[in-house]
């Protein structure tokens, strides 16, 4: 097994000032050929990029905050994640089913895709590099506590850890626990506490979390 890249998905070279890489050339060529052949238009590509840019962790955070403040909504979210997100006006696409897994006092959840990089992308956008890395994919299923500790999350042995490997048609989002001391916060204030990593399950929100 090669360790030459430290097991991470290294950052690609910058694209603009230097000559294009072979793969950047290939992307342009494929795109132009498909446009010439009327498979889609340049506008279709632009719109698709814009659509993905609009999918951010803030969308998922809004879903979490709603679940924290509206028990009936939380029930619907746990029952059918896709429908509950659509209820919030989110376009979830048609390609998978979203399953929300709830953290409780005694259970902590974390998500991974060991086979590729399945991720709740229509809810919270594209995954961070580490989620796709060899290090995370190999280790989170085998030594989740050590991995979570690397992310600064030390959980007591009394907390059960449930890892979810997204191998087929389900995608997962972690519904974190509402932090103590947030009783008088508004839904918007609560949403600001929920980071991307909280919804992957490598972090938990605190009353002082600043969502990035």
């Amino acid at each position: 097994m090669s360790d030459s890249h430290g097991g991470h998905d290294h950052a690609p070279p910058p694209g603009h000032d230097g000559p294009l890489t072979y793969y950047q050339l290939k992307e342009i060529a494929v795109r132009e050929l498909l446009i010439e052949k009327s498979v889609f238009t340049a506008d279709d590509v632009r719109r698709e990029v814009e659509k993905m840019d609009q999918r951010t962790p803030a969308k998922g955070a809004a879903v979490v905050a709603r679940a924290w403040t509206d028990p009936a909504y939380k029930e619907r979210l746990l029952e059918n994640g896709t429908a509950a997100c659509e209820e919030m006006g989110l376009d979830m696409g048609q390609t998978y089913y979203l399953v929300a897994v709830e953290n409780t006092e005694s259970v902590h959840n974390a998500i991974v895709c060991t086979l590729c990089s399945c991720y709740p992308r229509t809810l919270i956008g594209l995954p961070p590099d580490w989620y796709k890395s060899r290090a995370y994919r190999t280790r989170i299923v085998r030594e989740p506590r050590a991995v979570l500790a690397e992310f600064g999350l030390e959980l007591p042995e009394s907390t059960v850890i449930r890892v979810h490997d997204s191998t087929a048609d389900m995608r997962y989002m972690v519904l974190p626990r509402r932090p103590d001391g947030t009783g008088d916060m508004s839904e918007e204030e609560l949403a600001a506490l929920v980071t991307r990593d909280c919804m992957i399950g490598v972090a938990v929100p605190t009353a002082e979390t600043v969502a990035s």
């Binding site: 097991g7 694209g15 992307e27 795109r31 060991t114 580490w130 280790r139 299923v141 085998r142």
Partner: peptide
């Protein structure tokens, strides 16, 4: 690769996706 040895520490530094990468995704 789930559970395979030698994963090493997790590098948490990310990068912002370049436009060409977003276009590949869009394709």
């Amino acid at each position: 690769m789930g559970g395979e040895p030698g994963g090493g520490p997790i590098d948490q530094t990310g990068h912002d996706y370049a436009l060409w990468e977003k276009r590949v995704d869009a394709l």
